[in-house]
């Protein structure tokens, strides 16, 4: 069963017709040719498909596109501004936070969303004081990004990239 929807993807309004069974991930990749969100596990376990949906990080494989008519979607492609990489993208480059690169767009979208959560004062599982300020140390970064797997094992440099971003 088809549905006509509009998504704002990386700053552009895009109208498309999707079968209701189409996930947001497949709508982005197969209908709109926005291929930075990657299909890893397709079951919400690897985080490679992470995008910012109305500003919040989510896995795009576990939600149907039809449920997001009118939504604002930002992928890793849309994070750059004026031809300049986003600061998190730059930090990944500087710290060599990837090897094959497959998980990287998801890592970066997840990191950008995570930094907003920290800015809003949200605690995590490893935060000692639930009502106190959050210090984004390595343990916090690792916990908060546990929904993004990297099978090359570039975690050490991913953590370094985000520590650099947190310190700046």
């Amino acid at each position: 069963m088809d549905a006509r929807i509009t998504l704002r993807v990386d700053g552009r309004d895009r109208s498309l017709t999707v079968d209701t069974r189409t996930t947001l991930l497949d709508a982005l990749r197969d209908h709109l040719s926005v291929t930075s969100p990657k299909k890893g596990c397709d079951h919400g376990q690897c985080g490679a498909c992470t995008v910012l949906l109305d500003g919040r990080r989510v896995v795009s494989c576990l939600t149907f596109a039809v449920a997001h008519d009118g939504a604002d979607v930002t992928t890793a492609e849309g994070l750059a501004e004026g031809g300049e990489p986003h600061p998190v993208q730059r930090a990944f480059l500087e710290q060599d936070g990837f090897q094959c690169g497959f998980c990287t767009p998801g890592q970066i979208c997840s990191a950008v969303g995570m930094l907003e959560e920290v800015k809003a004062g949200h605690p995590s599982h490893v935060t000692d004081d639930l009502t106190g300020p959050v210090t984004l140390d390595d343990e916090e970064i690792r916990e908060r990004l546990s929904g993004n797997l990297c099978r090359c094992g570039a975690y050490v440099n991913i953590v370094a990239a985000l520590r650099e971003e947190a310190d700046s």
């Binding site: 919400g44 992470t50 896995v59 969303g113 995570m114 995590s124 599982h125 639930l130 546990s146 929904g147």
Partner: peptide, 22 residues
């Protein structure tokens, strides 16, 4: 967070940041 830390803690121990947002 203030009144029922066990609930905040339980939620934070579940799933991933992306899944908890959804």
């Amino acid at each position: 967070r203030e009144r029922c830390p066990m609930l905040a803690r339980a939620l934070l121990s579940g799933a991933s940041g992306q899944l908890r947002n959804a």
